[in-house]
Design a protein around this nucleic acid. Structure first.
Lengths: 353, 353
DNA sequence: AAGAGGAATGAAACCGATTTCATAAAATGA
DNA sequence: TCATTTTATGAAATCGGTTTCATTCCTCTT
């Protein structure tokens, strides 16, 4: 069942049916009704592939996420698909499993004809292959939108969070609560969030005149297991820290596991604040003070940016689109959810240390 | 840059270029090399849309998930995308937000021309609209693969888990540990997992001659907040239960939150076993005995089933495909991860921690 | 050397839409 | 009423591939 079948049944030409389908052209009211009736009675639906070919465009967006199972990216995905739903895009999901090589390969597979845009959280900020692939896609006319992580020398639209300030506020809170021996479980240095959060940590220390100890700064790689190992090193120091700022949710899990296994108690022995909320812990009765951000919103905003960019491309549409001479960067604000893990409960604790 | 450009540059016809691109046809070695060289030097890549149109097929699969943020579905998604990657399919993600109406609408949007198959965990098993939409898609030739939840009167391929036995083993364990007042936080009755898990619970009680108390069976709807409210009712009974079997991970969160807020301690006051693991709780030092299953595997298996079905469609290919006279149903086994929450620690009660 | 058979290739139809352009029909104006 | 403009519609080109079918070109027999 195709457009000519309908045309025949309605006694008109395919062109006329096409015009009816697309609503815009000028068709006599009586003809329109006849055609619409025929279509209504049939189970015809236009072949989207043929349309895409003819129009030279589509509404398919590829979304690259490094870790499909990380709740952070689930929320992003939720935001993206929600907005895609209202803006009428299709989201194709590509999990890169934190593997730069896989990411690069899948990026090379992206076919301009099949997709109209790419939303990506790159595995690594400094991966030359990925950077080159993105550049090529971009130059061929495919808009790119970054989420959370940046790309070196790439000037793409993107949605980020106010990482530095978020970290700064968190560490400031730790300081204000009297903590001095504050360790930083940092993220990968070659990633925007890793770098910025470290800067926030440093800024807070400087502001309060607390000397920075290099041995208190250790890379947790945004990973649970790496952080777990990092914790071992930290706690083996002659003068170990008693307060921790963890750079993301996975790191926090590593910290928690280490503390748990070594019977170190938050609020009694140490304090902890982390970037990114871990809602499950609340059910577990573990109240961790966290730097939260509107993650789902980051996803929907990315989709919105992409849409604006595409609107701009489809033709100069000053109201809706945006020109290629402007780069869109949205920064979402972080907020501190204070739950008490930043404070040592000296009075209530019976065994003090 | 299209196939005719390449053809011109190589001094051959588009047909020949096409044959080279598709590898299969008989082309003289020297011609093949010439064409391949030209293509290699250009940045040409075939228009996938045009190919799809011409071939009348594509490799796009739509995946419908009711709750994008639920770790269970994240794992499924991970499994699907992983296998899609190796089998060369694109996964188009649709979140239905547990909304039957949205689900139905998006199903109606699925265009036979744009997709070659659907993988879905339907919101409700007994939703007439969704059932009708699936039937229509299926009859129009689109293969459907169900995951975890079933559809009434729909005979589709699917991947499920051994829900009844999983629940049975869990409740049996509770019984063996001496628990007698065992409550069931059930799932929606109109869902296969909800139903089967309840059957497992009943089977265990019957087997051990424990009378079934209707007031101990309450619907948590596979949701955290509903379960939380359900817990209030349960604990308000004259003779409240002291042992809980929760039907899924979200329910377990509801139970945990209630217990936490009311200072009821697992292992001291009550026992708890749940369907589906919640890895985060381990980091929190909460050790819950759970019915686990290879969730990621369920996703990849669904993708595999779909592929086999499509292979069968593309032509009778006895080795790889499967005929339409066979329905494929894969049941993954559950396994009990025993962590101690099923046992009241009478002796050690005060001694430890 | 001629005919047969097979391999290599191109012309053209096709997939199912959209869109331009030309034309027929209707509406308008003088 | 006739010329002019406007509106409605269809024929045909197009998007970028694949595939059938016919043709040409070899190679091999006899």
């Amino acid at each position: 069942m195709n457009i000519s079948d309908i045309a025949k049944m309605a006694g008109v030409s395919p062109a006329t049916v096409s015009r009816v389908l697309n609503g815009n052209a000028r068709v006599k009211e009586s003809t329109r009704q006849k055609v619409e009736e025929i279509i209504g009675n049939s189970n015809y639906s236009p072949n989207q592939i043929a349309r895409n070919l003819s129009n030279g465009c589509n509404r398919n967006v590829a979304y690259f996420a490094p870790d499909v199972e990380n709740p952070f990216f689930s929320k992003i995905l939720h935001g993206i698909t929600g907005m895609a739903n209202t803006l009428n895009y299709n989201i194709f999901m590509i999990g890169t499993d934190e593997d730069p090589e896989l990411e690069h390969r899948k990026l090379m597979d992206i076919n301009r004809s099949e997709f109209c845009g790419v939303i990506i959280t790159p595995v690594a900020e400094d991966d030359a292959a990925t950077a080159a692939a993105l550049k090529e896609l971009s130059q061929s006319g495919l808009p790119i939108v970054l989420i959370d992580r940046d790309i070196q020398n790439g000037h793409y639209d993107g949605v980020f969070s106010d990482d530095e300030n978020g970290a700064y506020e968190a560490v400031k809170l730790l300081i204000c609560e009297g903590n001095r021996k504050i360790a930083l479980i940092s993220g990968p240095p070659a990633s925007r969030p890793g770098r910025k959060r470290k800067e926030g940590y440093l800024k807070a220390l400087h502001e309060y005149g607390i000397p920075v100890r290099d041995d208190y700064i250790i890379n947790g790689g945004f990973k649970e297991d790496i952080t777990y190992e990092a914790m071992k090193k930290l706690m083996a120091l002659d003068d170990p820290p008693d307060s921790f700022f963890s750079s993301n949710n996975q790191s926090a899990k590593g910290v928690l596991r280490y503390l748990k296994e070594n019977h170190i108690e938050i609020g009694r022995d140490v304090t902890l604040v982390t970037f990114d909320d871990i809602p499950e812990l609340v059910y577990a009765g573990i109240d961790i003070t966290v730097v939260d951000r509107p993650v789902m919103e980051m996803g929907s905003e990315a989709m919105r940016l992409l849409d604006r960019r595409l609107q701009g491309r489809r033709g100069p549409n000053p109201e809706k689109g945006i020109g290629d001479d402007v780069i869109q960067r949205s920064i979402v604000k972080t907020s501190l959810i204070v739950r008490g893990s930043e404070r040592i409960q000296r009075r209530k604790a019976k065994g003090k240390k």
